[in-house]
């Protein structure tokens, strides 16, 4: 039980998908012009994350290793279709506000990343708690970002007016530029307090990666190991 809780907790803060691992940036930036949209997007993503985690961990011994990525993507796309049709039928205004970003959950790196790095190696219960934690962390990050942008850009939160008429809305916060700048400053703010264990000063390409047994594995390293292990690439033919 404590193990399950540990898996749940790490997604909330230590390995937060948005602020620490920088995964799934497209929806994070695109739909956070209000806290409501952020919440809806977060819930839709969490649903897909949870359902695909259950499926992938159930089928992890059946899916052949070579075609696993393709199989995961088909599973994910199926659940995204369900989420999209559900939103369109039950909550048309939200479905309209999110637009093409709901189908784009298919290519959210967070979901495929968790399927490959976690669910394909762990049992159902562990995978569920991991997915719940990651989903909650992702939703929380979207609400924080959406909340800040809505308060500054519109003077309201969850469409309830917070600031009076004296407040001149910062329109720039609702525009694309405001999204980038807010997230950049937020990440800087969090780094200032946590000092994450990534060697500071390295270029961003090496920041992208995941933690394994307490060690930060950069994406390029992981890919290199995978390539060496799985297929000795024959690029130069020996005579």
């Amino acid at each position: 039980m404590t193990d399950l809780f540990k898996e749940f907790k790490k997604g909330l803060w230590k390995d937060n998908a948005v602020f620490v691992m920088l995964l799934g940036m497209c929806p994070v930036l695109a739909v956070t012009n209000s806290a409501t949209n952020g919440l809806a997007m977060g819930l839709a993503t969490s649903f897909v994350l949870l359902s695909s985690a259950i499926f992938v961990s159930t089928l992890r011994h059946i899916i052949p290793h070579q075609v696993r990525i393709a199989s995961y993507i088909v599973i994910i796309a199926t659940f995204v279709t369900i989420a999209d049709y559900f939103l369109a039928a039950m909550l048309p205004p939200i479905s309209k506000a999110l637009g093409p970003y709901v189908p784009l959950i298919v290519v959210n790196c967070l979901i495929l990343g968790r399927a490959e790095a976690f669910s394909s190696k762990h049992g159902i219960a562990t995978s569920i708690s991991d997915a719940l934690g990651m989903g909650t962390g992702f939703t929380g990050a979207l609400i924080i970002l959406g909340g800040i942008r809505e308060i500054l850009g519109n003077g309201s939160l969850f469409e309830v007016k917070l600031l009076g008429d004296w407040f001149e809305p910062w329109i720039v916060m609702l525009l694309p530029g405001g999204a980038f700048i807010t997230l950049g400053l937020l990440i800087g703010f969090i780094n200032y307090f946590t000092k994450k264990p990534v060697a500071l000063g390295v270029s961003l390409g090496e920041d992208i990666g995941y933690r394994e047994k307490g060690q930060f594995v950069t994406a390029n390293e992981a890919y290199g190991q995978h390539q060496e292990k799985s297929s000795p690439v024959v690029t130069e033919k020996t005579e």
Binding site: G184, F189, S203, D207
Partner: peptide, 28 residues
Amino acid sequence: LEMADIPYPLKGAGITLIVAGFLALAFM
């Protein structure tokens, strides 16, 4: 930017996102 003296919490992702923000404003 590689040579610039950036405050350490913003190094990497932070400053890149802020630069992207200004680029987006310029493209407007």
